[in-house]
Amino acid sequence: MDALKSAGRALIRSPSLAKQSWGGGGRHRKLPENWTDTRETLLEGMLFSLKYLGMTLVEQPKGEELSAAAIKRIVATAKASGKKLQKVTLKVSPRGIILTDNLTNQLIENVSIYRISYCTADKMHDKVFAYIAQSQHNQSLECHAFLCTKRKMAQAVTLTVAQAFKVAFEFWQVSKEEKEKRDKASQEGGDVLGARQDCTPPLKSLVATGNLLDLEETAKAPLSTVSANTTNMDEVPRPQALSGSSVVWELDDGLDEAFSRLAQSRTNPQVLDTGLTAQDMHYAQCLSPVDWDKPDSSGTEQDDLFSF
């Protein structure tokens, strides 16, 4: 819950932080000083300027060897085509990944977070970031790969997607708890209302004896509580940590079903599988986004697919 609360507080303090972009060759504004600060901008989305290598189908939802083989196929196909790589912007948030063309600003792909089953910074092609997700059109699994400016960037994108998945799962947990509370309150309110109706004398007997209905007592009954809980029953509950912020979080049926399955089948359902080692994760978390744009010590960066 700490990640969720800190993310909400950060967004309320400075929503404009989320509009910064990394990996864009110096076009961005001043960047936060450390990885923790940038992680807090996830709610509205972190932007990464990358190059799209392509996509291939895979048979399993996750796995280092599986993704490595898929990336190898994608890279080989991209090299064989001889075409310049498409420059894209990857927007990562707890909602998922939005992929747009840098030149036309046209939407290429919009992947809900619950469809993503794996992401990684490839070991062999260490400047490549990739994720595996279920197609929104059918049940097939797709591996999408992107060329980053350097290994640090690939690791940073991988960690960002993993963190977005974690925050999304926490949102789901909060929403589920809130819905259970509202359902319980609604049920209790309905029981109270039913009890009051059972003990209320029939209207005919009131008229016969000349008694008047006590409207004041009726007004004191917990009807307002019942209506408050039943009027918006169809509205999706939102985490309290975000009250007053500009973010509107809505959970669709697909996300609810997917996270429910994860909660039942996995020990740590909030953790998205990645190909990063503990050492890689520690190294990337210690980086400032400013470091992502620094040239690798191995030599001059080449803006070309064939540089790796």
Score class of each variant (00 low, 15 high):
P32S: 02
W172S: 01
L66R: 15
K30P: 13
T149C: 06
Y283S: 03
A70R: 03
P269Q: 01
F48W: 08
T41R: 12
L53C: 07
C143I: 04
L47Y: 09
N229C: 05
T225N: 07
S6Q: 07
N102K: 11
P201T: 09
V236C: 07
T230V: 06
L223C: 10
E180C: 10
M46S: 02
A195D: 03
A258C: 00
A221M: 06
T36W: 08
L276Q: 01
V174N: 04
L57N: 07
N232R: 09
D304E: 15
E217N: 03
H125L: 08
Q86S: 14
N268T: 00
A7E: 15
K62A: 11
K181S: 13
K152I: 06
A7I: 11
Q106L: 03
P239K: 02
D293I: 00
L159T: 08
Q197S: 11
F171L: 05
E180T: 10
D252T: 07
A68W: 13
A168P: 01
S265I: 00
A18H: 05
K184Q: 11
K181H: 15
R182K: 08
S14F: 00
K5Q: 10
K166D: 01
V75M: 12
L50A: 04
E142A: 07
D280Q: 07
W249P: 12
L215T: 14
A195C: 04
T41D: 01
Q155W: 04
L99M: 15
L255P: 03
D293C: 04
E250A: 08
Q139M: 15
L203R: 04
Q285I: 01
D126P: 02
M233D: 08
G190W: 14
A18G: 07
P289T: 07
K30R: 11
S224F: 10
D126E: 05
Y114K: 00
P289V: 07
L107W: 04
Q302A: 04
R182Y: 12
L11F: 08
E142V: 15
W249D: 09
Q20D: 12
G210L: 00
S245Q: 08
V88D: 12
G254D: 13
P237C: 07
A69W: 14
G189P: 00
R238N: 02
V161G: 01
C148A: 04
A145S: 13
L11T: 11
R95P: 14
V92H: 13
F129V: 14
S14Q: 04
Q136C: 03
S243Y: 04
A70D: 13
E44L: 15
I116H: 06
Q187V: 03
Q270C: 00
N229E: 03
T41P: 15
N268P: 01
S16D: 10
A145V: 11
T100I: 15
D252H: 04
K220D: 00
N34Q: 15
A130L: 05
L255F: 05
G25C: 11
L85M: 14
L212D: 06
P202A: 10
C148L: 15
K176Q: 07
G63K: 03
S297Q: 08
P289Q: 04
T41V: 12
A10D: 14
L251D: 09
P269M: 01
G194A: 15
A7Y: 09
V248Q: 03
Y283A: 10
T100D: 14
S205C: 05
F129Q: 11
I12H: 09
H282S: 06
R29M: 05
A145C: 14
N232C: 06
L141H: 03
V161Q: 00
G23P: 11
L203I: 09
G23R: 02
F48T: 11
Q240E: 05
S186H: 01
K150M: 01
L85D: 13
P94R: 09
K123V: 07
K181P: 15
V167M: 03
L66Q: 06
F129K: 12
L287H: 00
T158Y: 01
I98K: 06
S117G: 06
W292M: 04
E180V: 12
E301I: 06
T300W: 05
K62M: 06
T77C: 03
A154E: 03
Q163P: 00
V290A: 10
T149Q: 10
R39Y: 15
A121D: 10
Q279H: 05
H282M: 08
S140N: 15
A70V: 15
K84H: 10
Q86L: 15
L66G: 12
S243E: 09
T56Y: 14
R151E: 00
T225Q: 10
Y114R: 00
G244K: 12
H125T: 09
Q173C: 11
L223T: 13
E250H: 03
C286M: 07
A121L: 12
E216H: 01
S112D: 03
D253Q: 04
S81T: 07
H125P: 06
A156C: 06
K84A: 08
I71C: 09
A219L: 01
V271Q: 02
V157N: 10
E301T: 03
I71K: 05
D101M: 04
K30E: 14
D183C: 13
T160M: 09
V167Q: 02
S265F: 12
K51V: 08
P289M: 06
K87R: 13
I116Y: 06
F146P: 01
S81K: 12
N229A: 15
L287C: 01
C148N: 03
S205G: 06
Q20F: 10
